[in-house]
Amino acid sequence: MTSSAHTPSDSPPPIELTLLIPCFNEQCVLAQFHARLMAIVEQLKITTEVLYINDGSQDETAAIIDQYSLDGRTRSLHLNRNFGKEAAMRAGINEARGRAVIILDCDLQDPPELIPLMVQEWHKGFEIVNMQRRSRHCDPWLKRTTARLYYAVMDQLIDDFDVPREVSDFRLIGPNALAAIRAMDDNAGVLKILVSWLGYPTTEVNYDRKPRQAGTSKWSSRSLLNLGADSILAFSTRPLRMYSYLSGISFLLGSLWIAGVATFGELTPQHLLLQAILLLCLGTAVVGEYVGRVLMVVSPRPKSLCKREQP
């Protein structure tokens, strides 16, 4: 009687790398992107899967990536609606089967040909491989200016860790960092800042950002402002602390001035109104400090992460 049980050698090899591609209305560029991407996959010496995340596209993107999924090396995941790139990336990270993931856009501004170099850096021992833009002359002046402003503000408001400049979501995330991100709630913060917060061995690889091959950017001015606000509010209470200091100093100076007026001049209702406003500002600052403390306590990020455990 012949046994039908599979031996361990019959099982497929584990997937080492997932290439995670968020998509939103990218039908114009997908064919060119997929051809270049699969040419790179053929060259890689590790088992690799391609995971497309359809972020509620309204064009033919869903049908195109479903067609690509007929290839056993490619899968597609469809979100119910457009939740935004952050949500799409987190959904892809939770769905990825690879030990490591590389996140890249399909507009070809982030060349797929750089993937082997990223894998090489990972195998050198780096848990995070950030692709750092050496130049971005292809971007409009306003976008370049707001990007510089964003990184300058983050440098001033975040003290606990460094946020590398000119680094987008084009990066490799290794197994340990991937496990740490998955262990946290989806509201743990903006992914590009969260990856820096983790503190795992990181390297930056410089590259020249390319012009978009087709379609238009899905980032509006409003969404960029929201991204900046989320980056700050999730990782820093310094704006609140600065307001508290300003309120305290204003209250102290105002109180001294009003005391001087009451001693050497005539105290009017306007002076009392000013003192009441200053007292209100100080009270708001105190309440804000406690709100900030609550934010840190309920944050889904742990207080620390272990680099390794002793055997």
Rank of each mutant, 00 (worst) to 15 (best):
P112M: 09
V153D: 06
G174N: 11
Q132G: 02
V167C: 15
F170N: 05
C138P: 02
K143C: 01
Q120F: 13
L172S: 05
L142C: 02
A96H: 08
R133W: 13
C138N: 13
Q156E: 01
N130V: 08
D139H: 12
I128S: 05
A177Y: 12
E121F: 03
D159A: 15
S135V: 11
Q120M: 11
P175M: 00
I102V: 15
F161Y: 10
Q120G: 08
L108C: 13
L108P: 03
Q156T: 04
P112E: 11
L142V: 12
L157G: 02
H123D: 07
V101W: 06
R165D: 12
H137S: 13
N176E: 07
R148Y: 03
V167M: 10
F161Q: 03
R99Q: 15
E121S: 03
H137I: 11
L108K: 10
D105Q: 14
P112D: 09
R97S: 10
D139S: 12
Q132A: 11
P111I: 04
V153P: 01
V119F: 04
I128L: 14
R171I: 03
C138K: 05
I173H: 04
S168I: 01
E113I: 10
P140R: 10
E113H: 04
D110W: 05
R148Q: 07
L108H: 07
M154I: 06
N130L: 15
D160S: 12
C106R: 04
V167W: 04
P112K: 08
I128D: 03
P111E: 03
N176W: 03
L142P: 08
E166Y: 14
D169L: 14
D169Y: 15
M131C: 08
V167Y: 07
D155S: 14
P164D: 02
A100H: 08
F126S: 00
Q132C: 07
R144E: 01
E95R: 15
V129C: 04
P111C: 07
P175T: 05
L149M: 15
E166W: 15
P164T: 00
E113L: 09
L149D: 07
I158N: 01
I115T: 14
H123I: 01
I103N: 09
I103H: 06
P111M: 02
T146W: 04
S168C: 08
V119R: 00
L117T: 10
I115V: 14
T146R: 14
L104H: 10
L114W: 05
A100L: 06
P140W: 05
D107R: 06
M118H: 02
D105I: 09
V119Y: 07
L172E: 02
D110A: 12
P140T: 11
V119K: 00
P112W: 10
A152F: 01
R97L: 12
G174K: 09
P140F: 07
I173C: 00
E95M: 09
H123F: 08
E127I: 06
E121P: 00
R148I: 01
F170H: 11
E113A: 14
L104Y: 07
K124Q: 12
L149Y: 11
E166P: 07
E121I: 00
D110G: 06
Q109G: 13
M154V: 00
V119N: 03
M131Y: 03
R171G: 01
R171C: 13
A177P: 13
M118R: 00
